[in-house]
Design a protein around this nucleic acid. Structure first.
Length: 576
RNA sequence: GGUCUCGUGGUGAAGUUGGAGUUCACGCCGGCCUGUCAAGCCGGAGGUCGCGGGUUCGAGUCCCGUCGGGACCGCCA
């Protein structure tokens, strides 16, 4: 039907007769003897010159045949990739007329209410931005597949209708027609199946897998999302990180054209100490500075005897933060559970100004300034509390005060390793809770502390972080039933309970499970950042709104009684 | 479940101490126009100010409720 794409026509085509198809982006009439039509397809826009009267309007679908020619002197459009040429002597065939679009099909629609864009997503996607984003996504998928396959990974598809599992995220349930009252779940991840594929001797599995979680939506979370899911046999952590790094680096290079440096690693402990969070954003400084030793014999009650005292230096912000803003920061700290937040301002003569400065000795003040490398005009924020609280509060404030939008360069990838095996304590049972999931291999150097000090045991679990966004996580798994029992015991799970909850998963491991480990990372998040978007909806063709609805299809919709009868389901009246 | 925020012709905005659905830009329809390019000029149509109450002589504006969008917290082993 066509010989060229609109955006690809250039000076090398001059003199050729071409046929292009697309949508009318703009029509400019000059009497009934001359009109310009900008024709758009996914590749771009080309100007067609029409010498007779043709009724074409915005978004009409047309086929235009004509001759490529250079534009007359002085009429070159430098804003257009095809701006040096135009198609003349045009024969126009209207393939389909169209209603005027509800919003401009160009960059101006970036300002349109997102709900309206989603309602007319098929028009929104005609826009350059969405075309680019979806094609970026396809590039990432393709690069990831190539990278995985070149490393010997085998793509295996796992089921979408799976048993409901007791732990983890809330699941979507699918009623069984053959067995009314029973339900499938949609998979939160292919976790179980991929580990069983290792028992099954697949050796290296990968899948670009759709995962579903019925948890509240966010800028970086949808009900359904895509993950690169992978698992490897006969490997250690170094092997897994290398394999996944290769895929991520290939994906990034395919989009940006620049091969990222090897991905750096830090331990979870170091991430918490320096950045206060387990998904550190390495694009900016303002690191947490250790101050505990300075106040080891302080008279200041709020600092005396604190397990951990840390501070951050907010460069040059002393002036900007008046009483209201400082109170808001203090409130934020208290809401997170901190006892308080101490702020100090460095004045122009280098002294400290703060309600608490009178409680600090001259020596403490000077050490504070030198340790934090504070300069005139800086705002200093200090928290004294339990180590985890100090880190968490300052880490949050650091992000609040310094973090650039996620898509703003440079791209800073980082592996965070050695996550704690257990995190916190279950309020009801008093037992430790798994940091990642109960099948993570404990760190071999910490096995002697397993019973005596379980909370200090590290695991062979790791996260991949990009610009403060968690891209994904993984671990070396437990493949020995004895070790699994030890972890279950620490978690307060009896053998009976373990068999009941995880039996279908544990039994296969008695038939010869190889040592194995794996990883999964969210493709939507990676694509969003690489595409320069701060919202994954912008890189998903048909996303849901924050309330889980699709404004285009109106999903979810009510089920017919006939369907419900067949499934043996009755809907309760709405709660008053 | 919670906090904050937004809702005004098709789209984006403005709307003052409460005083007539007022305004601006784009789009749309009609006319003019032979080198424009998110064209220009002239004219026109188009809105139950998300919805429901309340206060008031009078509500886009104030109050209460509700629905919808967004950001965040909880949640996401």
């Amino acid at each position: 039907m066509r010989t060229h794409m609109c955006g690809e026509i250039g000076t090398s085509d001059i003199g050729q007769t071409v046929t292009v198809c697309g949508w009318v982006a703009k029509r400019r009439e000059h009497g009934d003897k001359l009109a310009f039509v900008d024709l758009r397809d996914y590749s771009g826009i080309v100007q067609c010159v029409i010498d007779n009267a043709v009724d074409v309007r915005s978004e009409y679908v047309v086929k235009i045949t004509g001759v490529v020619r250079p534009r007359p002197e002085g009429t070159v459009n430098v804003n257009l990739s095809t701006g040096e040429v135009e198609i003349g002597e045009c024969l126009v065939e209207v393939l389909r007329s169209a209603e005027p679009p509800p919003f401009p099909v160009d960059a101006r629609a970036d300002d349109v209410d997102e709900n309206v864009r989603l309602q007319y997503r098929y028009i929104d996607i005609r826009r350059e931005r969405m075309q680019k984003n979806l094609r970026t996504r396809a590039k990432v998928n393709s690069a990831v597949r190539t990278a995985m396959e070149s490393q010997g990974f085998v793509e295996v598809e796992t089921p979408m209708l799976v048993p409901s599992t007791p732990e983890g995220a809330r699941e979507f349930l699918v009623p069984s027609r053959k067995e009314p009252g029973s339900f499938y779940a949609l998979p939160q991840s292919p976790q179980l199946f991929k580990q069983l594929l290792m028992v099954a001797g697949i050796d290296r599995y990968y899948q670009i897998a759709r995962c579903l979680r019925d948890e509240d939506l966010r800028a970086d979370r949808q009900y359904e999302f895509m993950q690169l899911d992978a698992e490897m046999s006969f490997v250690n952590q170094v092997d897994v990180l290398a394999a996944i790094s290769a895929a991520v680096i290939a994906a990034a290079e395919s989009v940006t054209g620049v091969k990222p440096d090897p991905i750096q690693q830090i331990t979870w402990r170091e991430a918490m100490e320096r950045f206060g969070v387990d998904k550190p954003d390495l694009r900016f400084g303002m690191e947490l500075t250790e101050l505990t030793a300075i106040f080891s014999s302080t008279e200041f009650k709020a600092f005396a005897g604190a397990e951990s005292i840390k501070g951050i230096r907010v460069e040059g912000k002393a002036e900007e933060f008046g009483r209201n803003k400082l109170d808001a920061l203090t409130d934020r700290a208290k809401k997170m559970g901190a006892k308080g937040l101490v702020w100090l301002k460095v004045t122009t003569d280098g002294t400290l100004e703060s309600p608490v400065v009178k409680f600090l000795s001259a020596d403490e003040q000077s050490q504070l300034i030198s340790t934090l490398q504070a300069k005139a005009g800086d705002l200093l924020l200090i928290v004294a509390d339990k180590w985890s609280m100090t880190c968490e509060v300052l880490g949050t404030l650091r992000n609040d005060l310094g973090r650039p939008p996620v898509h703003q360069g440079p791209y800073r990838y980082v592996w965070v390793t050695e996550f704690p095996l257990f995190v916190g304590v279950d309020k009801e049972t008093g037992q430790p809770k798994p940091g990642h999931h109960p099948f993570c291999q404990p760190h071999p150097d910490d096995l002697d502390k397993f019973e005596s000090d379980p909370m200090s045991v590290r695991s062979l679990a790791y996260d991949l972080v990009l610009n403060g966004w968690e891209l994904g996580s993984g671990s070396i798994r437990i493949h020995e039933p004895e070790m699994q029992r030890r972890v279950f015991t620490a978690l307060g799970i009896s053998e009976d309970e373990a068999n009941r909850k995880f039996g279908f998963f544990l039994k296969p491991f008695t038939y010869g499970a190889p040592p194995h480990g794996g990883f999964a990372f969210g493709l939507d998040r990676l694509v969003a950042i690489l595409a320069g978007e701060e919202n994954i909806r912008e890189v998903i063709a048909f996303p849901k709104t924050q309330s889980g609805q699709d404004p285009m299809t109106n999903a979810p919709t009510r089920a017919e009684n006939k369907q419900l009868d067949e499934l043996g389901i009755r809907v309760l009246p709405p709660k008053v």
